[in-house]
Amino acid sequence: MRHKNTIVLAFVLAAAFTMSGCQSAYYKTMESFGYHKRDILVSNVEKARESQEEASEQFKSALDKFSALTGFHGGDLQETYERLNDEYEASEAAAADVRKRIDAVEQVGEDLFDEWNTELDQYTSRKLRNESRVKLSKTKSKFKRLLSAMRKAEKKIDPVLNVFRDQVLYLKHNLNAQAIASLKSELTTLEADIGRLIKEMQRSIDEADAFIKELKKN
């Protein structure tokens, strides 16, 4: 129980430092509890992967609601609009979480590699220094590939949100058959955009799995 409470305390204190914008204090606090930048990076990559998985499911759910609306044949359009707006807002929140998680991955990754590179000068053994330099280079290369996949997936989010936003706004002031017809005309584009988004997110998730596996192995 004490170990569990210690972990909770570490993350509470670290979160406080993060919100205050003091990154160095955050790292020092985490290190005092035995969590170094490598551990934090693994944790952040795991959270980014989870946020992308959740976002993928949310966008699928929103697409289902939009698709269902195109088959609307009567009932309470106001209630339908509110459900659709809820899906849009949930999708926007999921997208914001994805962006935040990717930013956190990038920040800790850069800080870890800066620290690692600086520490190379502290070696007295040339052999160990060279081995560490090679390992650093390989890890940075894998991280660059991971971050590229994450950012590529992130870029696919806005086109989907833009269509969601436009349709929800239009429906808000046009609760009629014309608005439903407008949704139908956008559905094919929306399905294609979400398909591409989910595909890129899965590639990013796969890269995250590979990177975590590699980092834990070393």
Results as ranks from 00 to 15, higher is better:
Phe33Ser: 13
Asn218Met: 08
Thr188Asp: 15
Gln58Thr: 15
Lys140Ala: 03
Ala10Pro: 09
Gln167Asp: 08
Arg165Leu: 00
Leu190Tyr: 01
Leu69Val: 02
Lys172Asn: 10
Thr70Phe: 00
Gln107Phe: 11
Ala25Trp: 15
Asn162His: 11
Thr70Tyr: 00
Thr80Pro: 02
Met201Ala: 04
Thr29Ser: 10
Gly34Leu: 02
Ala16Leu: 12
Lys138Met: 11
Glu92Lys: 14
Val98Asp: 11
Glu46Lys: 06
Thr118Ala: 13
Asp64Pro: 04
Met30Ala: 12
Arg196Asn: 14
Met150Lys: 02
Asp97Val: 12
Phe17Ile: 00
Leu147Ser: 01
Leu147Ile: 08
Lys144Gly: 05
Arg49Tyr: 02
Lys4Gly: 11
Lys28Tyr: 12
Leu77Val: 02
Leu41Val: 07
Lys156Met: 15
Leu169Asn: 11
Thr118Leu: 11
Arg99Gly: 06
Leu120Pro: 04
Lys47His: 06
Gln202Arg: 13
Ala149Arg: 11
Asp206Trp: 01
Thr124Phe: 14
Leu84Lys: 03
Thr18Asn: 12
Ile7Asp: 13
Ala10Ser: 14
Leu147Lys: 03
Leu190Cys: 04
Leu147Ala: 01
Thr124Val: 13
Val8Gly: 05
Glu214Ala: 14
Arg126Ser: 15
Leu120Gln: 06
Asn117Gln: 12
Leu120Ser: 04
His73Lys: 12
Gly195Thr: 10
Ser141Met: 14
Asn44Gln: 14
Thr6Trp: 05
Glu46Leu: 03
Leu112Trp: 01
Glu87Gly: 12
Leu197Pro: 00
Asp121Gln: 11
Thr189His: 09
